[in-house]
Amino acid sequence: MKRYFIIQSQSPFNDPAAEQHYALAKDLVDSGVPVRMLLVQHGTTVAHQGTQNSAFQQLLSSDVELYADRFALHERQIQEEELHPGIVAADLDLVAEALLAGDKVIWH
């Protein structure tokens, strides 16, 4: 089964669909397929420690691997040490590698 790589550009603070995307990522990983999610653009805003969103908290405690786009973090002046534990700052080469590895890459 191909792995999933989800690019999450939407923020739960502006887009209610983001919470559905988190739940879907959990369902996919619970179905036995590895899932990675890269937060990009406003999708990174939920990565800051102290944010309050229960759907994202559930995602944080799931087996979904979480990354945040370093460029988007820098734009928002979010320091890497300010991220929730478990979220790793990454560059977009991660997406290129996932595409080349044949992952199902989905833009949300």
């Binding site: 089964m1 999933y4 879907l24 369902d27 996919l28 619970d30 199902k104």
Partner: peptide
């Protein structure tokens, strides 16, 4: 149902 989406994606 939303819970069927993972299976559809797979």
């Amino acid at each position: 149902p939303r819970k069927a989406l993972a299976s559809l994606y797979n």
